[in-house]
Design a protein around this nucleic acid. Structure first.
Lengths: 254, 254
DNA sequence: ACAAAAGTGTTTTTCGTACACCCATGA
DNA sequence: TCATGGGTGTACGAAAAACACTTTTGT
C-alpha cells in the first residue's frame, strides 16, 4: 500500500531531521459567512480530522517551523501567528488508539519517546486568500465552523478550546481583524467578527463609535453595492496605527 | 574533582530518565523591601548566575516537573505557578561559551541535540516562606532585585523580561498578591507591590477604594505597630473571593 | 514638637451602555 | 412600495482619576 510506504518514509525523515518528542499544532482561524472557522485535515483513508501540525527541524526556530507548517497548509506567507500554550501533559492521548484510527504501521521499533510535547500556535488568516491544501498524509483540508467541530484526533479539541479562549482574552486588549478580514471591509462585517469571537451581540452604534475612536481604521469613499439595502461604506485598517495598538494593547472590550 | 564527577553523573541520569532537548526554566518572583525579587542560582565554582531549571522525566507532565523544580529550590509546595512561554529560537545561546563558563566536562560524546527548547514558568511566592536552597550544581541561591539583575547565563535575561511582561499584563485583569505577600499585610504594602509590578506610582486613596471594592481582602482589627507613625491596619485575602476573581478575571488596572 | 507614614472624601471627567428612527437600495 | 440591512446621536450612570489635609506614633 503506497500510503503506508509514504508514511514510513515520512517517519524516517522526521526521525532524521527533526527534534524528537516535540511537535507543533496550529489552530488556523478564518472568518466567513459570519462564522469563525478552523482549518482541519482529514487523514488519508479515514474519517478522522485533526489540526495541521508538524515537527521542528533540528536547527530550526520553533516560530519558523510553525510558519512553515502554516504556509504549507494555507499558501499564505503573511499572517498573524502566535504561540499560545505548550501542551505537556504526561498522557495527552492514547497512542494505540491513534495508531489504530490512522492505520499506522508498527512504530514500536522506532525510538520514539513515550509522549510528545506539543507547542500550540494560533493563526489568523484572511479566509478569501487561503487555498486549503492537503498533503500526502491527508485526503482533505477544509474549514470547519468552530462551534461545530467533530471529535478530533489526539487532544486537538482541547487545543482548539485553549486557542479560542486565548483569542477571546486577546480581543479585550488588542485589536483583531487585520489578518482575518479582506483588505476592505464594512463596519457591519467587522462587527460580526467581534460578535463571533466574543460570542455575544454588540450594539452597532456603540461599536462603530468605539472602533472609529481607536483610530485604527479609515473610511474610504467607496461603498459596497449589491444588497437590496443601503450601500455600506468600506473601511480599511491603518496598518501603522493597528500595529501600534497591537503593541501597546489598551482596548478593553469587556 | 568531585564536582565534575557529580556533573557527569547528573548528565547520565538526565539522559536516562528525562526527555531530551526540552527543559524548564522558572522565574520565581518574590516581594521584599518594596522590591520585586527573582530567585537566582550561582553555579559551582563560578560567578555565573542563572534561573533555576531542570528537565522533565519521560513520563512526567510538564506542569508537574515545573512544580517539582520549584519545590526543590524554595521548599514551598503551595505557590502560584504558570506557564508563560516556550523558548524555541534556533540559537538561544552559545553552548561553547556556556560550557566554558561553567567548566563543563566534554559533552561531545553525548547524544545531545544541537539546541534545547525551554518551557518558561513563572511563580509567585511569599518571600518570607522561602528557604532558598542551592543544589549540588550550584554554590548559592539567593534573591536578586529584578531591576538589578546581573548578566545571566543562557538566554535567561530574556526569559525574565518575558515573564515580567506577562506578569504586568496579568495584573491588569487578575488579582496578584495572594502568593506574593505574607498572610497579613497592610494596604500600603499591597500598594507597593502593585506599584512595583506596574512600575509607576498609584494614588493611595483610589487604590484603597478599588481594592476594597473588589471584595477580595478583609480588614482585621489588628494594627501593625513599630514605626514612628500611625499604625496601619492589617488585611488578609479572602481566599474564596480571590480565587473567584482569578478565574473570572475582570479587574482592569490599566 | 516634629518627622514620617497612614488614613480618608469629594469633585470632575471619562467611558460604557442603553436606546430608536430614518435612509438607501434592489426586487 | 416594500423588505432588508446600514447608518447615526443623545442621555444616563458607573467608574476612574485628580486632588490635600488630618491623624497617629516614636523619637
Amino acid at each position: 500500500m503506497n500510503y503506508k510506504k509514504q508514511l514510513e518514509e515520512y517517519f524516517n525523515e522526521v526521525d532524521a531531521r527533526c527534534v524528537l518528542g516535540l511537535s507543533i499544532d496550529c489552530v488556523i482561524f478564518g472568518f466567513y459567512d459570519n462564522q469563525l472557522k478552523v482549518l482541519l485535515l482529514r487523514w488519508k483513508q479515514t474519517e478522522e480530522w485533526g489540526l495541521p501540525g508538524g515537527f521542528i527541524y533540528k536547527n530550526e526556530s520553533v516560530d519558523v517551523a510553525a510558519q512553515r507548517i502554516l504556509e504549507e497548509r494555507t499558501g499564505i506567507k503573511e499572517l498573524f501567528l502566535q504561540q499560545f500554550h505548550t501542551f505537556g501533559e504526561d498522557v495527552r492521548y492514547n497512542r494505540q488508539e491513534i495508531s489504530q484510527k490512522l492505520s499506522w504501521p508498527d512504530t514500536s521499533s522506532r525510538q520514539w519517546p513515550d509522549r510528545t510535547v506539543s507547542i500550540g500556535y494560533f493563526a489568523l488568516v484572511d479566509f478569501s486568500k487561503v487555498a486549503p491544501t492537503a498533503d500526502f498524509l491527508t485526503d482533505e483540508c477544509r474549514w470547519w465552523d468552530v462551534e461545530k467541530l467533530p471529535s478530533l484526533l489526539f487532544d486537538h479539541n482541547h487545543i482548539v478550546a485553549v486557542a479560542l479562549r486565548t483569542l477571546r482574552v486577546q480581543l479585550s486588549w488588542q485589536p483583531v481583524g487585520y489578518n482575518l478580514l479582506p483588505e476592505k471591509f464594512t463596519m457591519p462585517e467587522l462587527q460580526r467578527l467581534y460578535e463571533t469571537i466574543l460570542n455575544r451581540p454588540l450594539d452597532p452604534r456603540n461599536f462603530s463609535k468605539k472602533m472609529r475612536a481607536l483610530g485604527i481604521i479609515e473610511r474610504l469613499e467607496e461603498q459596497r453595492k449589491g444588497g437590496a439595502f443601503k450601500s455600506p461604506y468600506l473601511f480599511r485598517f491603518n496598518k501603522e496605527k493597528y500595529e501600534k495598538a497591537l503593541q501597546e494593547g489598551n482596548l478593553a472590550f469587556s
